[in-house]
Simulated scan of single mutants.
Amino acid sequence: MSVCQTCGACCASFRVDFHPVELAGGAFAWGQGVPVEMTVPVTPAIVRLCGTDASPPRCVALAGEVGVAVSCSIYDVRPSPCREFDVEHAACNRARQRCGLAELPRS
């Protein structure tokens, strides 16, 4: 199990905005694309994953308990912000801190 599968802090800390072309049927979608019903429109050029603008945030696609065992229910079709985020980003440790988890050592 990867560190991400026992964490999930990023999915419970940040807003996830992306262009509608990544939605299901979109020109730049991976696989079938992000399900439209899991998003809310923000502007004509931005959609947001549901739950990520809640207080506290929690992505609708996040399954499991943060810090214990988590998974993404749309992992294969997740949007670009999720694909680009990794444990090397300083934001990873900020998210972990927000969720009460220990920082990861930097390589």
Score class of each variant (00 low, 15 high):
residue 65 E to P: 04
residue 40 V to W: 07
residue 94 R to F: 10
residue 105 P to R: 13
residue 27 A to H: 06
residue 49 L to H: 04
residue 83 R to Y: 05
residue 12 A to R: 06
residue 47 V to C: 03
residue 1 M to P: 11
residue 60 V to Q: 05
residue 99 C to K: 12
residue 47 V to D: 00
residue 70 V to A: 04
residue 46 I to G: 03
residue 57 P to T: 09
residue 26 G to F: 03
residue 72 C to P: 01
residue 99 C to Q: 15
residue 88 E to C: 12
residue 51 G to P: 06
residue 73 S to T: 15
residue 24 A to S: 07
residue 34 V to G: 06
residue 93 N to W: 00
residue 90 A to Q: 11
residue 95 A to H: 00
residue 79 P to F: 08
residue 19 H to R: 01
residue 81 P to S: 03
residue 15 R to G: 14
residue 41 P to E: 07
residue 87 V to N: 07
residue 15 R to T: 15
residue 66 V to M: 11
residue 25 G to Q: 00
residue 11 C to F: 10
residue 15 R to P: 13
residue 12 A to S: 11
residue 40 V to L: 12
residue 25 G to H: 00
residue 77 V to M: 03
residue 94 R to D: 15
residue 84 E to T: 12
residue 90 A to K: 09
residue 43 T to D: 10
residue 26 G to S: 01
residue 22 E to W: 03
residue 67 G to V: 06
residue 31 G to N: 02
residue 14 F to E: 05
residue 104 L to A: 01
residue 82 C to Y: 08
residue 101 L to R: 09
residue 34 V to K: 02
residue 91 A to R: 10
residue 107 S to V: 11
residue 104 L to C: 07
residue 65 E to A: 08
residue 96 R to L: 11
residue 53 D to S: 14
residue 31 G to W: 08
residue 57 P to E: 09
residue 65 E to N: 09
residue 37 E to C: 02
residue 24 A to W: 00
residue 55 S to F: 12
residue 72 C to T: 00
residue 101 L to F: 11
residue 12 A to Y: 09
residue 18 F to M: 04
residue 11 C to W: 07
residue 51 G to K: 04
residue 106 R to W: 14
residue 35 P to E: 05
residue 52 T to M: 03
residue 85 F to N: 02
residue 87 V to C: 13
residue 52 T to Y: 04
residue 4 C to P: 10
residue 83 R to D: 05
residue 21 V to L: 14
residue 35 P to L: 00
residue 20 P to L: 00
residue 27 A to W: 10
residue 58 R to P: 10
residue 49 L to D: 01
residue 24 A to V: 00
residue 66 V to N: 04
residue 95 A to N: 03
residue 39 T to Y: 02
residue 28 F to W: 14
residue 10 C to V: 05
residue 7 C to K: 09
residue 43 T to S: 13
residue 53 D to G: 13
residue 27 A to Y: 06
residue 39 T to G: 01
residue 100 G to F: 08
residue 58 R to H: 01
residue 12 A to V: 09
residue 73 S to Q: 11
residue 96 R to K: 12
residue 13 S to I: 09
residue 39 T to L: 04
residue 57 P to S: 06
residue 41 P to A: 08
residue 61 A to S: 08
residue 90 A to S: 10
residue 95 A to M: 01
residue 45 A to R: 14
residue 7 C to L: 05
residue 86 D to T: 13
residue 48 R to D: 02
residue 21 V to D: 15
residue 9 A to W: 08
residue 101 L to M: 15
residue 82 C to A: 05
residue 104 L to Q: 01
residue 65 E to D: 12
residue 37 E to Y: 04
residue 95 A to S: 02
residue 36 V to W: 11
residue 31 G to T: 08
residue 69 A to E: 14
residue 29 A to G: 10
residue 57 P to C: 05
residue 34 V to R: 00
residue 28 F to Q: 13
residue 78 R to P: 08
residue 58 R to I: 05
residue 17 D to F: 02
residue 75 Y to C: 00
residue 77 V to R: 08
residue 100 G to V: 06
residue 68 V to D: 14
residue 77 V to W: 05
residue 86 D to E: 11
residue 86 D to C: 11
residue 49 L to I: 12
residue 34 V to Q: 09
residue 56 P to N: 07
residue 22 E to S: 07
residue 21 V to N: 14
residue 44 P to I: 08
residue 54 A to Q: 15
residue 68 V to A: 13
residue 36 V to H: 13
residue 63 A to F: 09
residue 101 L to I: 09
